[in-house]
Nucleic acid binder design. Structure first.
Length: 575
RNA sequence: GGGCGUGUAGCAUAGCCUGGAUAAUGCACUGGCCUCCUAAGCCAGGGACCGCGGGUUCGAAUCCUGCCGCGCCCGCCA
């Protein structure tokens, strides 16, 4: 109810100064009511009793009287127990809805455009994408869409793991398997583990693997060619998964570790120039105040290993410099699991100390919890290994297909397949995006694919029901744009309240990087619609009411569809 | 041992940043509602010492503090 607060504030301004209360004393008292049963907006006056030396309910009574008729056409005001309660008038609500109706952006404002780099997904070359990449990819994709919608230039960066010591063994393994063979034939599900097993058991293999790393780092053409084969094979896999998931990432967004490899020595030099580097057991490290290891000794951030190799931290520092100097961004988001919180805290601190970023740069680790199985442990396959993301997505669509086939046998095979994809993928994404990302969440097929509750199918169904109203009578959706919205029934008014909360929820979701705040509001809207639709006939209503309700339906559908799209979820017309 | 996160009805969650009234939502449960626009839905009901103890405050799920449980992290992996 941000809009109502904004509308009431100027009215209170003069009243409050008249009774002798400074703006700073009441400014943040005026806010959305904690309980919508009382009011839309409320102002508790208890803290003012110190200033005015009067009882809270006397104060709220006085303010109510002073407001007089100024709130007419805006809201009803009452004074109870020291609270001023403001309830929006239906005319004011309908004015806002009509604004939204003719607005492609549904009253969502754009912000002053910033360049925002979002680092997400980050799978590893030569490995299958697995469930560990799910949340980063889904949350990152949603934030990408949401922030772009708010008017920012989002630069997605997929920091794939395509460099480092494991590539020695991977390349040698590729050679062993026959380099002439088509890279299409590389089986990513076993490639890495096969190579690792040989590396651990075969000393001849491990020694040539180590030699291969050196050749790779000196950019020996033959080695790079083999490396590129592995990368290319993996990109085909990544893109297959991304396409199936419907996320925005493409090859243009790749910013793998190999991209930064050549500038790492420069990073070391810069840190040395700043006097930050120290030597410890042959490694070059930075010690930061306040960080201690298990033994209580100073904990370093390792910049260069004793063997001369580099770590993830160094690559991250190079990334920061690149993003600020070359991409021109001052907003860096890292959609990475919560377990890496310490790593990022240290990296950001070093980057600041080294002058890579000043205080005005927002480098933010956006952490998330684990995906748990129903056994309460980190989700794993039956054999204990990581669950392949592709398999998960395929299963989601298969399960959705079976449900749709049962619920709506009339759909053609083609349409059912399309709907199943939207429902299945939507269900997985929504399950992830509808709760606070910092919680661990339990992966449950039945729950996420249920048509009841706070799920993607429930929201999609609400949308599809509205579409079917329009198609039933062959009514053009755009025909309602100039409709007069008349809110009479309490459930029409409840739906209106839900709808005007959309822009606010989106803004809140963006500023806190918490997509669930948008998801929660969409669920409120879908619920309010379901409740409205049950008792408010649309097509069978009289002229003006019918047009008004059609407009309300259209606005609801557009809000659900747009909101879901911002979460990366499609809304079928029929299901 | 230190750090980060988390704990809210049987279960899953929102609310915590920025304190406000009878703690909200979903699943499950109980009962009701289809000759009428998708019942894949809707309505009603029961169910919570908001982990525990202190503190601050007129007022604490929310802020501070101490415990407890759970998860994760704590030097050459990423």
């Amino acid at each position: 109810m941000r809009d109502l607060v904004d509308a009431i504030r100027p009215l209170l301004n003069s009243v409050m100064s008249d009774i002798g209360v400074q703006e700073s004393d009441w400014d943040n008292l005026l806010a959305s009511s904690t309980d919508s049963a009382f009011a839309d907006v409320a102002m508790p006056c208890h803290s003012l009793s110190k200033v005015l030396r009067k009882a809270p309910n006397t104060i709220s009574d006085e303010i109510l009287e002073s407001l007089g008729s100024t709130t007419e056409g805006l809201c009803q005001v009452s004074s109870i127990n020291g609270f001023l309660n403001f309830s929006a008038d239906s005319d004011w609500l309908s004015d806002l809805l009509q604004e939204a109706l003719i607005d492609d952006r549904l009253r969502v404002l754009t912000e002053e455009s910033r360049v925002i780099v979002i680092d997400y997904s980050s799978p590893n070359v030569a490995k299958h994408m697995h469930v560990g990449h799910l949340r980063s990819t889904v949350i990152g994709d949603a934030l990408n869409r949401m922030l772009t919608h708010k008017g920012h230039r989002v630069v997605p960066e997929n920091h794939i793991g395509d460099w480092g010591t494991p590539f020695g063994m991977l390349i040698e393994h590729l050679i062993d398997m026959g380099i002439d063979s088509d890279s299409q034939n590389i089986d990513l599900s076993t490639f890495y583990s096969d190579a690792r097993a040989k590396f651990d058991s075969d000393s001849e293999f491990s020694s040539r693997s180590r030699a291969r790393v050196v050749r790779m780092q000196s950019s020996e053409p033959e080695t790079i060619e083999l490396w590129q084969m592995l990368v290319d094979r993996s990109l085909i896999h990544f893109n297959e998964v991304y396409q199936r998931m419907g996320v925005l990432l493409t090859n243009d967004d790749l910013a793998g570790e190999s991209k930064y490899e050549s500038v790492l020595p420069r990073i070391v030099d810069k840190l040395a120039e700043r006097g930050l580097l120290e030597e410890s057991d042959g490694a070059k490290v930075v010690y930061l105040d306040g960080w201690k290891n298990r033994e209580g000794e100073p904990l370093p951030l390792i910049i260069q290993k004793a063997d001369g190799g580099y770590n993830y931290a160094t690559s991250d520092l190079a990334c920061i410099l690149d993003r600020i100097e070359n991409v021109g961004s001052r907003d860096l988001l890292y959609i990475v699991g919560a377990e890496q919180a310490q790593h990022f805290a240290m990296v950001f601190e070093v980057a600041r100390s080294a002058g890579f970023m000043d205080e005005g740069v927002n480098a933010i680790h956006v952490p998330f919890g684990l995906v748990m199985g129903t056994d309460g442990k980190k989700l794993a396959s039956r054999t204990g290994g990581a669950v392949h993301l592709n398999d998960l997505l395929i299963e989601a669509v298969e399960r959705a297909d079976a449900i749709v086939a049962e619920k709506n046998p009339l759909l053609s095979n083609k349409e059912r397949a399309e709907v199943a994809k939207m429902l299945g993928i939507g269900a997985i994404k929504y399950a992830d995006l509808s709760t606070d990302r910092s919680n661990n969440y339990t992966f449950q097929w039945e729950k996420m694919l249920s048509f009841d509750g706070n799920t993607a199918p429930y929201l999609q169904y609400a949308h599809a029901r509205i579409c079917s109203i329009f198609s039933k009578d062959g009514i053009d959706r755009d025909s309602t744009l100039d409709a007069e919205i008349i809110l009479v029934h309490e459930r029409e008014i409840a739906l209106a309240r839900a709808l005007i909360g959309y822009p606010e929820a989106l803004d809140s979701a963006c500023s806190s990087h918490s997509p669930h705040k948008l998801a929660t509001q969409l669920h409120v809207i879908a619920q309010a619609f379901g409740s409205f639709y049950e008792v408010c006939p649309v097509l069978n209503a009289e002229d003006k009411t019918k047009i008004s309700r059609l407009a309300l339906c259209d606005l609801t559908a557009r809000t659900l569809q747009t909101g879901l799209e911002l979460l990366g979820i499609d809304s079928p017309q029929r299901m």
